[in-house]
Amino acid sequence: MDALLQQFFNFDIMMQASPIILRGFGMTLLLCLVVIPMGLLGGLAVALASLSPIRTVRWITIIFVDLFRAIPPLALLIFVSAGLPFADIRVSPFAAVCISFLLNNSAYYGEIYRSGIESIGAGQTDASRSTGLSASQTMAYVILPQAVRNVLPDLISNTVEVVKLTSLASVVAFAELLYAADMARSVTYNASPITFAAVLYLLVLWPVVRLLSRLENKMQN
C-alpha cells in the first residue's frame, strides 16, 4: 500500500514537477483554444457542403467525412508530421497537430451539425423563404440557431473528446500536459506526475461532463 502511494501519489514529487506540468497544462489549454474553434468552424463548413445542391460537392464531402472518421487520429497526426516533410513542407509540431485535428474534428463536428440541420422541419424553410429571406439567410437566422440547440449535447460531448485527444500531441513532441508529465515521470522514475496531469484533466472536464449530463436530462424532458 505504501509503495503504491509512493509511486502514484507522491506529493513532494508532484510539487517538484509542478512548474513543468503547469507549463504543459498551459500549452494544452492553448491547443484547445486553437483546435476547438477551428474544428467547430471546419465542421460547419463540412455540414453546409454536405447539404450543397451541387452533387459533386456532396460527394467530395462524403469522401472527406468517411476518410477522416475512419483514420485513427494518431495515425493521421504522425502522417502529417512525418509525411509532409517528404513533400518539402516543414511543419512545426504545433502546426502538425492543428492540421490533423482540423481534418479529424471537421469530419466529426460536421456530422453533428448535419444531423442538427436535418432535424429541422421543411416548414421552417418554407416560412422563411416565403417572407423573402434568401437560402443563406434562412440557414443563418432560422435553421442553424435551432439546429445547434438541438445538437448542443453532442457538440459538447465531442468537444470533451477533443480536449482529451490533445494528449496525442505528446507523440510529436509538442510539450502539452501529458508530454510534460511523462517527461517528469521519466526523470523522477515515479508515476505521480501522471496522476497530477490526470487530476488537471479531471478538474477541467468534470464540470463540463456534469453540465452535459444535466443538459441531456433537460432535453429529454
Binding site: G121, G123, Q124, D126, A127, S128, S130, T131, G132, L133, Q137, Y141, V142, P145, Q146, R149
Partner: peptide
C-alpha cells in the same frame, strides 16, 4: 406574397415579435 401554413411554422427560437421582425430586419 404573404403565406400562412397549416402547421404555423413559427420560428420556435424567436419570440412572436422576433418572428415578425426577422424579415423586416434582414430583408
Amino acid at each position: 406574397i404573404g403565406m400562412v401554413f397549416q402547421s404555423f411554422n413559427l420560428y420556435p427560437h424567436l419570440t412572436a415579435g422576433g418572428n415578425v421582425m426577422l424579415a423586416l430586419r434582414k430583408v
